[in-house]
Amino acid sequence: MKKHLLLILLLSALGGQAFAEPARETAQAWTPVRLHAVLAAMPQGDAVRGEKLHGQLFCASCHGERGESLSRHWPALSGQRAPYTYKMLLDYRDGLRHEDARAEMMVVLARMMTEQDMADVAAFYAAQPLPGSAPLKKGHPVNDLVRRGDPQRLITPCASCHGVEGQGGRNETPSLAGQRPEYLVRTLRAFRDNVRHNDVHQGMAQFAWDLTDEEIQALAEYYAR
């Protein structure tokens, strides 16, 4: 509760008329039906236009020229699935995703974009090569967790949604292949601690709740570049 209060204070301290409105905080949570409809209505993305926007709107400044990420602080976007990138931008815009000060920055930026803009940059990133690949790693401490899950903790295998090589795709999951390990750690913790909750019906968070810190670290390394 205290953490949320702090976030709300932080957000309202960010400035601008936009943050004075409480409406954003109660934006509609996702349902499978709404997600399907929104993605079906996603505009056709123009990767060429997307590349221009990615320069003009400072995306390149943090995420790198091709979206490959310039710092352990920011995720790689190169090769990311377009519907996922598009959805993340919507979530930032609507305040559904705002886990920390870095996310606050994305909120401001997403609000400068139209849905066409979002689809265009998503198309640009999707056209870039993935930063890595995460094939079967027998003997790795979390290989079993990734490939078989853990029935005791009701954790389905990561690969069943995030793909055999971590490339994502099932149930609108993102690619994890080659992602910044620090970012993956932060993300899993954010889901686990309910600081991030833009997933549909806690579809991701539920698998993070019972993960240990060591597992989170190992999973991040499993998928890392």
Binding site: C62, L70, S71, R72, H73, W74, D100, A101, R102, E104, M105
Partner: peptide, 11 residues
């Protein structure tokens, strides 16, 4: 740097 819009430079 913890969470901020700027990039941490350490390391």
């Amino acid at each position: 740097l913890g969470s901020a819009a700027f990039v941490p430079l350490a390391g």
